[in-house]
Structure formats: structure tokens, C-alpha cells
């Protein structure tokens, strides 16, 4: 019994879930609307797109380092798709724009992947460069601006899967059918990471690239695949966001990389160390988005939100990293 307890207490995940629960209880105590059916559906709705971007970030974080180019890539691919298929004149199947969007995302991911696989550069700097290129293409030659969606894409975004009403106060909440896409994506990536050589190789590269190469993993190919997959998933996220909002708003997603990287680290993923999985993404994203969305409910003014988020990120990372260090018995100063 005791070793199991010890094992549970030693895990970062336990503390993240505990913090999330405590925070939920605090919000519940103040507003009484957190642990209701509407509260939960609203939370699921809020984390939906972030969960998708979380996969992209996790793939990059596990094998190399942070990917800051996915907001630009997601916006670019969603923008191109929406400007082709987002008008009322397109009434065909939603599958076509969806696949087109994925293809554009994959293409962008390949650029990242090629550079990362071919050369030994920090991923942060490479993706900063590609991010600048992607957003430059979107605003420069393509002249992106805000436009309302019509036709198939707008309809797709407004399909709801679950609709609930709170019996106490009559508030309503909807969960879009797109949540199914998120579930399917998580199942696919879970399978890829656990049962394929690609997934095993990703973790091997993360923990020691040279050792992975010597034990026969084709490191270049795996990194290339990881970034291509990441780009594709980022594009899906951008597509979902655009359909959901019902408008092309290219600047909305920009700057979001910060939150996702923070969520992943809070959830227990170590950048470039081959530690972490989808579960870490989920708990990290849920915790961070929950805190961000409910600060107002706790009476913290809007202007203080950045301070609060920054402080949480710093504290969370310090605790997570140092608990892992002491567990692994790494000596200080190493």
C-alpha cells in the first residue's frame, strides 16, 4: 500500500489535478456555477481548441523543444481554406475544406520538420523564423483581414452535440460536435505514441538523440514526421477555431503559443527530455484555461490576469522541475 501512495505522491500529475480541484472548489464556493452541468460543458468548450494545439506542442516538446510557429501556421492554413471555401457559394461537403486545411498545415509542418531534422538547431529559433514567414505570407501577399464565414464551414461550426440547461438558473450551454474531432485526434495520437516505432522513437530521441540514433532509430525521419504531424494537427485546430467563431480572424490565435507551452510544462512535460504524454497535455491545458477563465469570478481584476498567469507559470515550472530533479537524484550544479 505504502509504495503505491509514495508513487502517487511523487508524480507531478497528482499535484496538478489537486490544484485544479482546489481551484474548482474555490470557484464553486464563490459563484456556485462551476460543478454544474453548464459549468462543465463550458469548460469542455473552452479547452477544445487548446487541447488540439496541445498535441502539436507536445510532439515538438518531447523530441526537440518548443514550437512557437503553430499559431501562425494554424491561422495561415485556416485563412487560406476559409477564403476558398468560406463563402455562401460553396455548399459541398465539409470534408474537402477540412482535407485542404490539413494539407496546408502538413506542408508548413514539413518546412519546420525538414530544418529540424537536417540541422541541429534549437527548435525555438527555427520555429520563430518560420512563424514570422507564415504570418508574413498571411498578412503580406494574401492580405488577410476579418471576414464573416458563410456556407458549409459556418454551418459545420454551429452543429452542437450536447445541449444542457441548468435547472437552477436556466442558463444554457452547448458542446459543439467538433469535440468529436478532438477525441478522435487524441485516440489516434495515443495509438501512434504507444504502439508504433515512430512514437517510441520520439521519446527515445527526446531522452538521448545520439543513443536513439545508435540503437537504430531513423532520427531524422522521426523528427520530420513529428513536425509534419504537428503542423497537420495545428491546421485542424485552426480550422475548428475558424468554424466555431464563424469568422476569419487571423490575429486571434497569435501569441497563444505562450499559453500552450506553459500548459504543457505545468502538466508535466519536460522540454526536449522525452518526458510527458497526452495525459499531461490534458491536465495542463484544463488547469491553465480553467484558471484563466475564472479569475474574474474570484474577483481578480482583468489587468491583473497577466501577472497571475505569469506567476502561476513560473511557480508551476519551478515546482515541477525541482520535484523531478530530486526524484531522479540529479545533483545540484550539474
Amino acid at each position: 500500500m505504502m509504495p503505491i501512495m509514495k508513487k502517487i505522491l511523487n508524480r507531478t500529475e497528482t499535484y496538478v489535478i489537486l490544484t485544479a480541484l482546489l481551484f474548482g472548489i474555490a470557484v464553486e464556493a464563490v459563484s456556485g456555477q462551476f460543478f454544474s452541468n453548464t459549468g462543465m460543458i463550458n469548460l469542455a468548450r473552452a479547452v477544445m481548441v487548446y487541447l488540439v494545439f496541445g498535441i502539436t506542442e507536445m510532439l515538438s516538446l518531447t523530441c526537440a523543444g518548443p514550437d512557437v510557429s503553430y499559431p501562425a501556421l494554424a491561422s495561415l492554413s485556416a485563412f487560406i481554406t476559409a477564403s476558398w471555401f468560406g463563402s455562401a457559394s460553396y455548399q459541398g461537403s465539409i470534408i474537402v475544406p477540412f482535407l485542404v486545411c490539413m494539407a496546408i498545415g502538413a506542408l508548413g509542418g514539413m518546412i519546420n520538420g525538414y530544418i529540424m531534422a537536417r540541422f541541429d538547431f534549437p527548435s525555438l529559433i527555427v520555429t520563430l523564423g518560420t512563424s514570422s514567414v507564415f504570418s508574413g505570407i498571411m498578412y503580406g501577399p494574401l492580405k488577410a483581414s476579418n471576414t464573416i464565414l458563410h456556407g458549409t464551414m459556418a454551418e459545420f461550426g454551429s452543429i452542437n452535440m450536447i445541449a444542457v440547461t441548468n435547472p437552477e438558473n436556466g442558463l444554457k450551454a452547448n458542446l459543439p460536435a467538433q469535440f468529436l474531432i478532438v477525441t478522435v485526434l487524441y485516440l489516434i495520437v495515443f495509438f501512434l505514441l504507444r504502439y508504433t516505432m515512430f512514437g517510441r522513437g520520439l521519446y527515445a530521441i527526446g531522452s538521448d538523440k545520439a543513443a536513439a540514433e545508435r540503437s537504430g532509430f531513423k532520427t531524422g525521419r522521426i523528427i520530420f514526421l513529428a513536425y509534419t504531424l504537428g503542423g497537420t494537427i495545428a491546421a485542424i485546430g485552426g480550422f475548428m477555431y475558424t468554424c466555431n467563431v464563424g469568422a476569419i480572424s487571423p490575429s486571434d490565435l497569435m501569441g497563444g503559443e505562450m499559453i500552450i507551452i506553459a500548459a504543457c510544462t505545468l502538466g508535466g512535460i519536460r522540454p526536449g527530455a522525452g518526458i510527458g504524454g497526452l495525459f499531461n497535455v490534458i491536465i495542463g491545458v484544463v488547469l491553465l484555461i480553467m484558471i484563466q477563465n475564472n479569475l474574474l469570478m474570484l474577483g481578480i481584476p482583468l489587468y491583473f490576469q497577466d501577472v497571475f498567469t505569469g506567476a502561476i507559470i513560473l511557480l508551476g515550472t519551478i515546482v515541477a522541475i525541482n520535484s523531478q530533479r530530486s526524484r531522479n537524484g540529479i545533483k545540484k550544479n550539474g
Partner: peptide, 19 residues
């Protein structure tokens, strides 16, 4: 505290932006 430089400065940047 051995936080990776990228994460530490990302977080402190957000904190300073907030201030």
C-alpha cells in the same frame, strides 16, 4: 532553480508584461 532558460524567461516575460 534550474528552470530551462526558455521557459523561465517566457514566464517572467509574461509576469513583467502583467506588471
Amino acid at each position: 532553480l534550474k528552470v530551462p532558460a526558455m521557459l523561465a524567461t517566457l514566464g517572467s516575460g509574461q509576469l513583467i508584461l502583467g506588471i
